[in-house]
Each structure stands twice: as structure tokens, then as C-alpha cells.
Simulated assay, not measured.
Amino acid sequence: MPVGVFSCVHCVKMDYDVQEGTIPRDFIEYDFAEDALDFENQLAEARDVKFTQTLNEQLSIGAHIVCTGTPSEDLPWFTVNIGVGDPEGRGDISVHFNVRLPQQYVVRNTRRHDKWGLEETTAFRLFPFKMDRPFTIEVLVEEKETLWAVDGEHYCSFSHRNPSPLAATWVQVAGVRNATLQIGKTSEYPTLAAPPVEVPLRPSVDAPPESLEINCWRPNVIATLSNGVPEGHQIVIHGRLRPLLHSFAIDLMDYAREWPFPNILMHANVRAHVESQKDRQLVVFNAWLGAWGPERRQRTARLVPGSKCTFKIIRGGDEWSVYADDVLIGELEYRAAPAGVKAIRVRGDFYPDDIYLCPATSSPIREQISS
């Protein structure tokens, strides 16, 4: 290859014979204004395609809304609204759940006195909606927030604002032609969730999976520990960190469920987005026993986004010890009897490939914890 001439194997060769300062003929003939007008017409049509159900009584804790439908190509977004006032005018919207398929994210917001609040877009899983594929959305009304699940998997939560959905008088779906709504009460959420898997017990940390084990681990998984975590044992979690690492949590809980909220006997939360310019990520330890207790915060994790990683949670004599790739990143003293742990939840930007329980061996500590 001549000096100074480079070829990138990842670059896509264009079909156009484009030279600097010229525009391909196909682009010149393309009417962007017409395309933008088509999109605006689609938005207007989506707003006109709506189904509203008036509430006979106000929503209360445990209220359960189920919405089904199928997104179509000619409607670029759809919305589930919970509101008060005139649903056909400019009534207040307590919760606005706006699915934007072209952009592949969901906006949550509140409208009061004809003014929108701050948008929320973060979620616990990847965008789950696709064109021409039926969906089922479950909405659970809780004391301080609404919980939203898509096809049986928890997707996001939205804290109550003003007006609260507890004062709502109607529920509306817009942008879906075959939408259905069912409103009732539930004692569990999500009702469509698959039964939780059981964390297998292996004889050692290096033991291969048994033939009867089924590899069904997925992001945001909840799994049962029927026999708990015996003293001197550890939970091992192999997985992959998301390339755009934001945060994730590993919870040891007393029940394998989303709601009613279980007690969390050990909560380890890695927050890579906090002062991300630093060479170590922040780790927050806590427990939820009806309410959060005092946090233990330390900058001890040194994780590489996009890489494989192994976490070990060891039940010791007086505390839970958490290791990342055999480096101790923190400990949390027992705030409830450790025998009460019956489930584990992995949520956020750490995607598990394998989870199992085994006897604990001496895990090396290559670095001391520093605050």
C-alpha cells in the first residue's frame, strides 16, 4: 500500500460517486419537506385514534390497568394517559407514557394547567416495542409511584407528581387502532411474569453446570434461593457490563417478586455515572426493610464498560462481602437475619450469563478498600 494511503475495513463503500462539494442526485430529487409533512400528518392521525375509559371510582393502591394493542407502520407513536378533567380537551395528565417507535424510547411526563413537566426516559430494560407486534402493558398504582411492565417484565417506574393518578378520572390510549383497556385490582405485579428460576447449587466455584440446569439468565432477572445462602457459601454471578455503563444493582431479597415490594437484606449499587471522570466507580451499600437505611458509600469498583465481569457475594459471620473479579469492593453488616434471604435480583447495566450458589473459598483481596 502506498505511503499515506489507508483503507478502513469497517467503512461501507457508498454506491454514489460522490466528490467533495457535490450532492448525490438521489438526494436532490428527494423531497424532505414532503417527508416531514407526512410525519406531521401521522402524528395528527395518531392523536385522533384514541380510546378513553372513564373511571367509575378513583384509582387506589393496587389498582391494575392492562392495555393491549399492536403498533402500526403508519402511526409513529402511541400513548397511554392517566388523567383528570376533560380527556377530549386540555385536561390534566397525571401520567403520560409516550412510546416513540422511530426513536426507540419511552417518555414519561405530567401535564398540569396545560404545561408539561420534566421528561423521564430511563428504563430497566431495552426498548421492548416493535411495529406490527402485539404488546401488553401493565400499570400498577402504588402509594408513591406507578410501575409499568411490558409483556410480563418490569420496564420502569414513575413517581407521583401533581396531579396524582390517585385522583384520576379517566384512562386513555391514543395511536393504537386495536387498543383494549381493563381496569381492576391485583395482589401481585406483573401478573404476566414467568415463574422465577431457581439458582442452582454447585460443589465448587469452578464446577461446570449440571446437565439439568437450564441457561435462561436474562437482564433484570429475579431468581429464587429456596434454601437461602448458607453461612460460608457464596453467590457467583458471571456476566457482561453494558458498554455505556450507567448503573446497576444486585439485591438479596426475602421474596422473588417485584411487588408487593420485598425486603432487601443486601443492596449493592454500582453508580458509574457519578463523577465518571474518576478511575473508580462509586459503590453504595444499603438495605430496605420497609424503608432505606443509612447508606454506605465508597469509591472502590474499577470496572471496564463492555467487558465480562464476575461478582461474588459471600455470607460471612457478621456481614455480606462483595467481590468484583476477586477484588473486594465492599461489605455490609447484617441488618436483618441473613437466613431470610430467599431471592436475588440483578437489575440495570449488568447482564448475567450464569448465576449459581457454591461453598466460599478464600477470595483474594488484591487491594484494600479506600473511601
Rank of each mutant, 00 (worst) to 15 (best):
G4E: 14
V5G: 00
V9Q: 11
V12H: 10
K13H: 14
Y16C: 15
E20P: 05
I23V: 15
R25A: 13
D26A: 11
E29D: 15
Y30F: 15
A33F: 11
E34P: 01
A36G: 06
Q42S: 14
R47V: 06
D48F: 02
V49I: 10
T52G: 13
S60F: 08
T68H: 04
T70D: 09
S72M: 10
S72R: 10
E73G: 13
E73C: 06
L75N: 11
V80S: 09
V80A: 09
G83L: 05
V95Q: 07
N98I: 02
R100K: 14
L101S: 07
P102L: 14
Q104H: 12
Y105G: 00
V107Y: 04
T110F: 02
R112P: 00
W116K: 05
W116P: 06
E120W: 01
R125Y: 04
P128C: 04
F129T: 00
K130F: 07
D132L: 06
P134L: 09
F135H: 10
T136H: 00
T136V: 13
T136I: 01
L140C: 12
E143Y: 04
E145T: 01
D151C: 02
S157G: 08
F158T: 01
F158R: 12
H160M: 03
R161H: 14
P163Q: 07
T169H: 02
T169D: 05
V171S: 06
V173E: 11
V173A: 04
G175A: 09
G175H: 11
N178T: 10
T180W: 06
L181S: 02
Q182P: 13
S187P: 08
E188S: 15
P190G: 12
P195E: 11
E198K: 10
L201F: 12
R202K: 04
R202T: 00
D206E: 14
S211G: 03
W217R: 11
A223M: 08
A223N: 10
G228L: 06
H233R: 04
Q234C: 13
Q234P: 00
V236K: 03
I237L: 14
H238L: 12
G239W: 03
R240C: 09
R240T: 12
R240A: 08
L241W: 03
P243N: 07
L244M: 11
A249S: 13
D251Y: 09
L252V: 02
I264L: 00
M266D: 05
N269R: 13
N269T: 07
H273G: 10
S276P: 03
S276I: 02
Q277A: 13
Q277N: 13
K278I: 04
K278E: 15
D279L: 05
L282A: 04
W288M: 05
G290S: 02
A291C: 06
E295P: 05
R297F: 08
C309K: 06
F311E: 01
I314W: 06
E319H: 14
Y323N: 10
D326F: 06
V327G: 02
V327Q: 15
L328H: 12
G330I: 03
E331F: 00
A336N: 14
A337P: 15
K342Q: 13
K342F: 00
K342N: 15
A343M: 06
G348T: 08
D353P: 00
I355G: 04
L357V: 04
P359W: 13
T361W: 12
P364N: 07
I365Y: 03
E367P: 05
Q368V: 05
Q368E: 15
Q368P: 03
I369G: 09
